[in-house]
Design a protein around this nucleic acid. Structure first.
Length: 490
RNA sequence: GGUACCGUGGCCGAGUGGCUAGGCGGAGGUCUGCAAAACCUUAUACAGCGGUUCGAAUCCGCUCGGUACCUCCA
């Protein structure tokens, strides 16, 4: 089937028809986390955004290789001890091996991703596992004349590169402007220009993580790992490179420069960037210390949280905004997302209780096209959800006897909800709701029969007592024309 | 200073020239012993000023306000 998928390409700043380089194969690389702390809400956004991209591309029939890295070396701390990277610093503080820290937070990250129902990437390479390849790439860039060594460190020669290529093509920055502004900052003497960036850095004695190289005992520059691992697993030229908008400059700009310097061409055809999550209009981030970790959301243990929010509520909340828009966090917004999501999940189950008619009074088939068009339009998940809410309204109207649907159409609606809500948007029902055991079922039914007797005798005191007590046990009773129904509450 | 971008009703959030976005919340109603759910109806909008146009939230200009990034800071 001909794809009409359009993707907003940060490189061209417009939506483009998605045409893979080698169909039906698609290569996608996304910058993963630096594992030196628990993942916060800001980390959930790229993970979920590109999870949906991954799911939808597969849905369209593409064979996707999705690579998401784990950064476990290299990111230097600027504000604290100079020359120490984040992993190392944490290790020294806690007297642990760096790889112990890495393992701990990598496991925690994976746990969070599973909770958010984020599919595992095809390959999850680590920077520390690709030191040799990184050294090779530095050599290649040097051989092409775009890097120079100084006192055991190797720097990328941006000025020289920019004479042959265009440094700033992704971020829209001009080298002259960078030069004017950055020259006043405390530049390092080793560099020819302040905007040159490190490819290899000589380790000073207190730096624990270091590897031998032709230039020094040291460690790779932080832009290098992504260039190396993407080309190793996806080839020198692949389809999609994704990441957070805050990585656009300098990180992704430098990746483009490194690839061009080593191979003569850009690494990725489409660059996708998810926007940031804000708190009171400000970026949620480590540096601002205004972040809330995912575990804190799940437990509710944070001063900014009124209560706990389930992983699926977080996921739904993120999907209710387009990935290229900023998304403002608040308790009200999360609660609204939770209620909306439960409404859709209820609809999914209501379908089973509807008696089919011979004739459908409404056209539900059109929703498939509408949902598909929304996804094709740069993964517009809020529009998909709006259509699903419309569909939900229709189902409820049928349930109320105001409209009718045939058995075939009812199945169609159920399948459509299943496909979009569960398979593509990755929402799943909370486990405690899914595990209604037969025992619980029987007990509650029995108690409700007693309550029904009480109601028949107009003994409302007993009836309400039963309902209130069940409520306290998180069992919500609803009286309907067909008798009392119940469900486990939030 | 530079670069990218944003400003939509109580809250969140779609929408790039004319057609109800949607969710949450509010108001009224149907149903109901009461409640909940569901359904129906409904209010509240496009930062300001000017321009283009038959017609602008949507294009252009200016003003005001806000955000992110600016090289080792994810």
């Amino acid at each position: 089937m001909e794809s009409k998928l359009q993707i907003y390409n940060s490189l061209t700043r417009k939506k483009e028809i998605f045409e893979p380089l080698n169909p039906p194969h698609v290569g996608m690389y996304v910058c993963g986390p630096t594992v030196y702390g628990d993942a916060h809400l800001g980390h959930a956004r790229p993970a979920i955004t590109f999870d949906v991209v991954f799911r939808y591309l597969q849905h369209l029939g593409y064979k996707v290789r999705y690579v998401r890295n784990i950064t476990d070396v290299g990111h230097l701390e600027n504000d604290a001890d100079e020359g120490e990277d984040k992993i190392t610093k944490k290790a020294r503080v806690e007297q642990l091996e760096p790889m112990e820290i890495v393992k701990y937070f990598t496991d925690r990250y994976h746990e969070n991703m599973d909770q958010l129902n984020v599919l595992h990437p095809s390959i999850e390479p680590t920077a520390s596992g690709h030191i040799i390849e990184q050294i090779e790439m530095v050599k290649s860039i040097m051989e092409h004349g775009y890097a120079y060594e100084k006192d055991g460190s190797v720097y990328f020669d941006v000025d020289k590169y920019n004479k042959e290529y265009h440094y700033g093509k992704l971020s829209g920055r001009k080298l002259e402007d960078l030069y004017q502004y950055t020259r006043e900052l405390s530049g390092q003497k080793e560099k020819r220009n302040s905007f040159d960036f490190a490819l290899w850095k000589k380790a000073d004695p207190k730096h624990i993580m270091h590897w031998p190289s032709p230039w020094s005992e040291g460690f790779p520059g932080w832009h290098l790992e992504c260039s190396v691992m993407s080309s190793k697993y996806l080839g020198e030229k692949f389809d999609i490179h994704g990441g957070g908008m805050d990585l656009l400059f300098p990180h992704h700009e430098c990746e483009i420069a490194q690839s061009n310097a080593a191979t003569g061409h850009d690494p990725a055809k489409y660059w996708m960037h998810n926007n940031l999550i804000t708190v009171n209009g400000q970026k949620m981030g480590k540096s601002l210390k205004n972040f809330i970790t995912l575990n804190e959301f799940f437990s509710g243990e944070h001063e900014s949280l009124n209560r706990a929010y389930s992983p699926m509520t977080i996921r739904f909340f993120i999907l209710q905004a387009h990935y290229r828009s900023t998304l403002d966090f608040s308790n009200d917004a999360l609660t609204a997302a939770e209620k909306g999501m439960n409404k859709l999940l209820d609809t999914y189950h209501v379908i089973d209780e509807i008696k089919p008619s011979d004739h459908s009074s409404v056209d539900v088939k059109r929703y498939e096209k509408l949902c598909r068009e929304a996804m094709d339009d740069d993964f517009n998940t809020p529009i998909v959800l709006a259509h699903l809410f419309d569909l939900s309204k229709t189902v409820n109207q049928v349930n109320d006897g105001k409209e009718t649907l045939t058995a075939e159409d009812l199945k169609f609606v159920k399948d459509l909800l299943s496909t979009y809500l569960f398979d593509l948007l990755g929402i799943r029902e909370e486990e405690d709701k899914a595990t209604d055991t037969a025992l619980l079922d029987g007990l509650v039914e029995t108690i409700l029969k007693i309550r029904q007797e009480a109601k028949k005798n107009k003994d409302y005191v007993t009836a309400d007592y039963i309902r209130d007590e069940l409520n306290k046990l998180n069992i919500i009773v609803k009286d309907t024309p067909d008798g009392a129904k119940w469900e486990l509450g939030k």
